[in-house]
């Protein structure tokens, strides 16, 4: 794949026909981004945290029932409702369109979490990093990502640290990051069914740019005008997707 031209616009496509709802992406994300796990009590309270979740919607009545799985992560909107309301600029959209969350700047008002129609921002109710990781398990923490302190919102960054790593490597080799394949978030990397695609939407040759033009492509809550950079592909029909 060619090198990116101009500023890349990183995007993701999720093929719901491939997705089996296995949640490998969820666990991979939690492992990669040091997202803490919850206790049974807090999980029951709705306080478990994940930057990507597999949402299941069951509709219909027996025997005509259908369950749909939908991996839901930060849609990295071009017009993000969460960014508009943040009082301190802790949530902002960076030049490449990734919606970042700057933890030392966040005051924990949770306004962004309420403004986000996708429910993808998580709040640190407790001092997770201090006592929720047993010493043994702290060994598996990723040094590229911080341990979020209590009282701040956290969210998906498309594994921005991976982008930086790829960019460093490319810079040393005197080139730009390839528009596809070189920088991949943990969820996309892990997907056993290869239902997730990632790349530069600005490069028309990337798989993801092609998928975005597919007849199966749709965006979540498109009517809100948030302009997500995560594209979903409808279930149940064949379409010419580029080879893996």
């Amino acid at each position: 794949m060619a090198e990116a031209k101009g500023t890349p616009r990183w995007g993701m496509a999720i093929d719901l026909d491939r997705c089996t709802g296995c949640q490998a992406c969820v666990v991979a994300c939690k492992q990669e981004n040091n997202v803490p796990f919850s206790s049974p009590e807090e999980a029951a309270y709705g306080r478990e945290m994940a930057w990507i979740r597999v949402m299941a919607i069951t509709e219909g009545e027996y025997p005509k029932v259908k369950t749909r799985y939908l991996p839901m992560l930060c849609q990295q909107c071009d017009n993000p409702p969460s960014v508009k309301v943040c009082p301190t600029g802790a949530t902002y959209k960076n030049p490449e369109g990734i919606v970042g969350q700057i933890y030392p700047r966040c005051i924990g008002c949770r306004y962004c979490a309420n403004a986000c129609p996708y429910q993808v921002k998580d709040f640190n109710w407790y001092n997770w990093s201090g006592f929720r990781w047993p010493q043994e398990m702290r060994q598996s923490l990723n040094p590229d990502v911080s341990l979020r302190p209590r009282g701040v919102i956290e969210k998906c960054t498309f594994c921005h640290h991976r982008l930086q790593k790829a960019r460093d490597q490319a810079a040393i080799e005197g080139r730009k990051v390839k528009s596809e394949g070189e920088y991949v978030p943990a969820c996309v990397q892990s997907c056993p069914a290869q239902a997730m695609f990632f790349g530069d939407l600005n490069d028309p040759e990337t798989t993801i740019a092609k998928l975005a033009r597919s007849s199966r492509a749709f965006k979540m809550l498109d009517e809100l005008g948030t302009e997500p950079k995560v594209i979903y592909l409808k279930e149940g029909e064949w379409s010419a997707t580029p080879r893996e």
């Binding site: 490998a24 991979a28 492992q31 056993p192 290869q194």
Partner: peptide, 9 residues
């Protein structure tokens, strides 16, 4: 081919 289920993850 690079896939790993949630248990492996």
């Amino acid at each position: 081919r690079g896939g790993l289920c949630p248990v492996g993850q």
